[in-house]
Amino acid sequence: MQKIEQLIKEKARDLLAAGQVTSVIAWQKGEMFYDNAPGYFDNTEELDALVYNAFCAANLSKYLIANTKKDEKTAVFLKPCDTYSLNQLIKDRRVQREQVLVIGIPCAGMVDINKVKAQGLKGIIGITEDGDNLTVETAYGTKQVARAEVLLNKCLACKGSAYAVSDETIGEPMAVKHAPYDRFAVVKELESLSPQERFAFWQEELSKCIRCNACRDICPACSCEQCLFDNPESPLAGKANNNSAEEQLFHIIRAYHVAGRCTDCGECSRVCPQGIRLDLLNRKFIKDINEFYGDYQAGADADTNAPLLSFDVDDVEPGAATKGRE
């Protein structure tokens, strides 16, 4: 990924120098090497903080909402999976397409630091990438780890190296090497359980929720000016889950609001501090939509109507749809 970072820096420098854009959105170095954060770069001096390595999982498309309000031109570097989210934001009119210069950058799959730690590595000081492996340098010695084993969950369901939307691209497309993965596998497994087991699973999973709203605020499809849960006028506003019913309520509504608009970018379960598998809820809706109304990938383009905003005269009947899967 090293030479891609170099190409990005040069591209950003040219754009800023030529004044083609007023700011560039990319990733900037953090304290450690793995906590890269999204960053705005307004002038060329700041560019040396720009970084692009195996820890740039953050989806930058949501930051464009703020910029396109101030009718300035912004350049953004997007991985293939982030471009779907940008299409969705354009379709929801939260981002003005003409004020964004989209530069597609290849991605070989991002690494999940927790999975690295789960391999018994502590006090990590540095990680260098070479080919399909990572050498991890820790206070307790260095270790070799295969990249495919420590990929983020969302990269396992990678939607391929094609860009859904891009003005320009940098570098050659890279494939994400990972074991074959059916993103609906866990959903199907849950569906096969009895209602009692499913309820117990979700009650356990959702009880960990501390209502910190990270899942809602990172989600590019959740882009309302004022969310239903923050609006004191709405009867559902609430700051904490008093019991299991309210936990489920918050998550059903959050998942329902993005149903048909969720591009399955996996950011919600990546950022959840409690590690709740929120993507399973979204994937359940995606699986249902595909099954009932034909395959639909949100953000594949910026104009087809979302499934819940359109209908077909001979749609399946509500009761029948869930027959057979008790």
């Binding site: 705005y40 703020a66 209502r211 605020d217 700051k239 950022v271 501090p273």
Partner: peptide
């Protein structure tokens, strides 16, 4: 510059052992 990329979510306050604000 610093606050621009903050999402305003509240994770930091809820995981922090010393944050004590309540409603």
């Amino acid at each position: 510059e610093l606050s621009k990329t903050c999402l305003g979510c509240g994770t930091c306050t809820y995981v922090c052992p010393t944050c004590h604000c309540y409603d």
